[in-house]
Design a protein around this nucleic acid. Structure first.
Lengths: 308, 308
DNA sequence: GATCTCTGGTCCACATTATGGACCGTTGCG
DNA sequence: CGCAACGGTCCATAATGTGGACCAGAGATC
């Protein structure tokens, strides 16, 4: 019933919650345990415009929920869990799920009657990362090489407004796994290595704008106050790479560098995460060198693709 | 205004159209030119149950449309084109698009104001192909190897009801490109190499069931009558692989083999497509050998993953 | 420069649409 | 045998999405 314990990673999903107000997180014993309902509450910076398509919003939120929850439960998510987590009546959840199933975005295991992402979701993702200058196609090889040479976990982080989203993740061959960041997780810019690399690449005025935009959301990240972030940005700019030295989760370190698109705008970041012990000065510099090489590879790939 | 000509591939998308009746395709000059509106009309075998979530259905259809159309237009799709193709009032389309944009599944180019798939779509796909025994993760390496050694285009096709959907596609390094099949395209089982491999792997009664289920839809595929398909199935079973010798698009040939999951059920197919000249008996057999090896690799990967 | 037409985008009275509390049948537990 | 939790369904209510009409701007064409 509950090996579902989120392994110590904070699930923070790119969800625009139906309700806007960032509900005051009620700690529940274990500090690392935050229910996915909190995840939902984590609204976007777009101040919840009450556009005229709320059922669609709700449907997509539910789709995201299925995605995130099924990530940690190989068997799929149960209806009751979805209703609990989404905090909506069961009938509504089921109705929406039916629609998603019918469209192929979600599939329901005929035996266990649990829900998980369907074929159409995979197809959509394939199409999303395929087109032209999309990062997906360009990043694959780099991520594989990075995780290979480092034996650690490599990430592709992209910017989304004032936030950074983990878009891809590649496990290395080594035995050490890092569960601090999973695909879909979202944090304010500056929180995490890739995220910090992105923030540091912005001009000063944008940094300030981002910091004020995420000020409220950063209540959840007590270690990342404005001053700390400013300091981190300065350090990253000076060093040419971003270092996450365990501020987010103690002992979980990472280094990241920014990736620029054809117009030299920072659009993504490559990072490698591991445990503190494996990021001594020496190894760190080796890793940064590889990271920068791969970032450059991606940059030229992006440039080449958008030329013609 | 119209370099948008679909390059000669038939777009057939996995869409459950809002309206059910498979509208009588009006040929319009060029025989290979079928407007995407036809694409939509191509309803699923699920006979359009009028479930209580029509706005969601419509939204997802529109999302699919953005995906398919943006595939051929690197810049994105214009609002007017979406309204034309979806055959709904502009206001409605726009309202839904706004919702999709707000949710991050679609993004709008601030300069050209065209729409294309957004970040969330990529994240969703990543999560969809990531989990446990998902084919996405397992197929990547095989597809890359296949396209590498063949210098042609490699495909992963999965079964969806009585249809086959192209789930992934990997271009080879060679100069020859095959546009007969793109990610998201859907054809009745039996039409195409991978699709035929899947069909041939089914027991006789299921083959019969599939054929009768797709009988109506196959009106669009005049070359693939029941008798022909039965013959093709027999040939494929005897040979151990499926051969598409240009029946679908003249000169476009392909070979495919089936991939079985942990329970030995046929769930997908690997195939390589190229031009007729590059599929002589000799080369064909070499390719089949490689295909079978990769299918076996995927099978063991799928088995291993679902054991614990 | 007046006109025509093609964009993308917005408005709002209307009725089609989604909503969710109550309910049912099963399963598993003490 | 109850009790609780599960997946799933029903249907009166009102909230929700709908889409024809409209506006402004950008090229063409004369």
């Amino acid at each position: 019933m509950d090996r579902c314990e989120v392994v110590g990673s904070l699930l923070i999903m790119v969800l625009m919650s139906a309700d806007a107000e960032p509900r005051p997180l009620r700690e529940r014993g274990n500090l690392a345990r935050r229910s996915a309902s909190w995840t939902i509450a984590h609204a976007t910076e777009t101040g919840a415009e009450p556009a005229g398509a709320q059922s669609i919003q709700r449907a997509l939120v539910l789709l995201n929920l299925v995605a995130v929850l099924a990530r940690d439960r190989p068997g799929g998510v149960s209806l009751s869990e979805l209703t609990r987590v989404s905090e909506r009546p069961k009938a509504s959840v089921r109705r929406v799920l039916l629609a998603l199933v019918q469209a192929g975005y979600v599939e329901q295991d005929p035996e266990t009657s649990r829900y998980r992402l369907g074929l159409q979701a995979a197809v959509l993702g394939e199409l999303a990362s395929q087109g032209a200058d999309r990062l997906g196609a360009v990043s694959t090889d780099s991520l594989i090489r990075l995780s290979d040479v480092s034996s650690d976990t490599a990430f592709l982080t992209v910017r989304h407004g004032s936030y950074a989203v983990c878009a891809r993740r590649q496990e290395g061959p080594g035995p050490i796994r890092n569960y601090a960041l999973a695909v879909g997780d979202r944090h304010p810019l500056g929180v995490g290595a890739g995220s910090l690399a992105l923030l540091s690449a912005l001009p000063d005025d944008e940094v300030a704008a981002v910091l004020s935009a995420t000020a409220a959301a950063r209540a959840q990240y007590p270690r990342f106050d404005d001053e700390t972030l400013h300091r981190l940005v300065r350090r990253s700019r000076k060093a040419g790479y971003a270092l996450n030295d365990g501020l987010f989760i103690a002992g979980s370190w990472a280094v990241g560098v920014v990736v620029r698109d054809a117009d030299d705008r920072p659009v993504a970041a490559l990072s490698v995460a591991t445990i503190a012990e494996r990021l001594g000065r020496q190894r760190r510099e080796e890793l940064v060198e590889v990271l920068q090489r791969e970032a450059e590879t991606m940059h030229t790939a992006l440039t080449r693709r958008t030329q013609p």
